[in-house]
Design a protein around this nucleic acid. Structure first.
Lengths: 336, 336
DNA sequence: TAATTTCTTGGAAACGTTTCCACGAAGGGA
DNA sequence: TCCCTTCGTGGAAACGTTTCCAAGAAATTA
């Protein structure tokens, strides 16, 4: 048995004869080591836990894929758990993953400040890296600098001559990410001397988005641009605007967030903040691996490089102020 | 030690006093069983392997999510591997998963007929269920009945008065799924007395789709409708058509496949085959669990219920044949 | 009170590895 | 030829559980 271990792992000596004997036996029995026994002995599982809210959201899906690729290349496998934005599942998931002795964790928690899961991880000293969260002290996180990105959106609206804008998000700005975006956007607007953006909060089922948008625009008639908290909602707003017989971008300009691929395929194309989920997921993955192996941690991108602004057909100067035709207005002013 | 095991697992007797002693010790030491030791002893890991090409594709992402939800509810966790359509990784992944002693497997392989991975699984007798594959003998699979669905697309084109159509797919119809769709579409067209659809094969990077589409339509001037092998490609075709100054659906009708959400948000909305990846993933998950527990296998949906056709603004009667305005033509004939 | 049963507890083996260590067989030098 | 070194091999312990079994304590019965 000891000999077999040595031969198959190429550790320690073995005569040529013995080597052959072992190998033929392995062949014959179709033998394969049990990783469970191995893990017990080595106290390592070559498995990384990955916890995200939902991979139905392409942002997380891409991030998970990015991390998973990194892990696979390094010989690690990925134990995936989707919490469906449920804190209990989140906590439970972490407990189980740690009981399963994962070598590390990549995770997006609902609220890093209060997360039981995160506290538990700390107490167990498991190598880990956050993803899409604001890192509390003593944690590292790969995420989009939401605040700065949202400020950039305000810049864009300002450059195109918009004054009164709106911000569309899920009710109660439920995630810390949404809050960051809202605050960044507010700050950006303030910096340009624009009035504070009006807040349009919606439910997740956007059945009545058109009605809500209608009311919102009637309540805030000066609004010429809306920043939606993600691209899907931005596209939904465009559709609703269409139903209200509003011209996008002439009557209403829309900017999204995330930079999903379809945004460039549709008409009008979507002006948006482009992010790189795969890169973030991969980065978080590499960070965890570096913690495990004690190697140098990969350098994180500059916060301001975690996103970029991409203009598109959904953004133009407001018609009322524009002195050229709608078609031309779809192009950015030369300065940009 | 034996006592601790009994107390914590509520198996076997323990005096009230002892019970308390154990529990306080557990509390004090923050003790938690190692699942590794447990697995070694019980020969079970409460882990299911899940192998798909890529979760960047929302179809697989949703399917994985569906399976994962089922597993989580049943107390199982999911070891996810994305193969990036690479057969070597596929084979390697399966080997490792089996070495890790997963209790079962849900997987999409590139070609079930020749898959080494699948053969390996069979030889090891691991409970498993295919997903989005045509099941070879002795295997079960949850998948869309691609052939029938594609036939349905031909029906739709026929109902709307189209005669010459085209089929757009990746080069060489690389997956068995794409082949099934092509064949089903061809069969459907034949049944309606329509000529055989022309085949437009593209690369994955659709930079030059517009050019290829242009040439394709010039080579086949009678074409009035295109069936794209998935929704993203359908949307891309719509964009390219727009660039070629073609009216969709007037000059060219488009039907997609998958039924992704954005299809309903964009303008024109996308006529497509709607599938339910979450349901399929969940079904495959339940099937594996039933194999593990020896319970009754869940009933699979009728093949013809694995999809439905949803019409949309991208499909109408061809203008040349239409005797009413384009707007009205966007609605289905009353018969449907 | 003694004998018998029931209840509680801890020892030991087993699961499948790896690693340390000791033992025996070669081989080389004197 | 004998001793010493080197090499190859297998025994044993350890990793953390669970489960079987035996032993002792307590409770019941005669």
């Amino acid at each position: 048995m000891a000999t077999v271990s040595r031969v198959l792992n190429n550790t320690g000596p073995a005569s040529a004869n013995m080597r052959k004997r072992v190998l033929t036996a392995v062949e014959e029995l179709d033998f394969q080591f049990s990783e469970v026994g191995r893990s017990l002995q080595s106290n390592t599982t070559r498995t990384i836990g990955c916890v995200v809210p939902s991979i139905a959201n392409p942002v997380y899906a891409d991030a998970v894929q990015g991390a998973q690729d990194v892990f696979l290349r390094a010989g690690y496998q990925t134990l995936l758990i989707c919490t469906n934005y449920n804190t209990e599942i989140e906590t439970q998931a972490i407990r189980t993953l740690i009981a399963k002795k994962v070598d590390g964790l990549v995770l997006t928690v609902s609220d890093p400040q209060t997360s039981e899961a995160l506290a538990f991880i700390e107490s167990r000293q498991v190598p880990h890296c956050l993803l899409y969260n604001m890192a509390p002290a003593n944690h590292t996180s790969w995420s989009v600098h939401d605040h700065a990105a949202a400020t950039r959106v305000a810049d864009a609206f300002s450059e195109y001559g918009h004054v009164q804008t709106g911000f569309l998000a899920l009710k109660f700005l439920s995630s810390d990410r949404a809050r960051q975006r809202y605050e960044g956007f507010v700050a950006g607007c303030a910096r340009h001397g624009m009035p504070k953006p009006a807040l349009l909060e919606i439910d997740d089922n956007d059945d009545n988005l058109t009605k809500m948008l209608d009311k919102f625009l009637k309540d805030n008639p000066a609004i010429t641009g809306i920043f939606a908290s993600n691209d899907f909602r931005a596209l939904a707003v465009i559709r609703s605007a269409r139903e209200l017989a509003l011209d996008v971008p002439g009557d209403l300009s829309i900017i999204g967030f995330d930079g999903i691929k379809v945004g460039q395929i549709v008409e009008p194309s979507l002006a948006t903040i482009v992010t790189n989920p795969t890169q973030l997921g991969g980065g978080a993955g590499k960070t965890v691996l570096s913690m495990i192996n004690g190697t140098a941690t990969p350098e994180m991108p500059d916060p301001d490089e975690t996103f970029s602004f991409r203009t598109g057909g959904s953004l133009s100067r407001p018609v009322a102020e524009s002195n050229d035709g709608g078609k031309v207005a779809a192009f950015p002013p030369s300065k940009i």
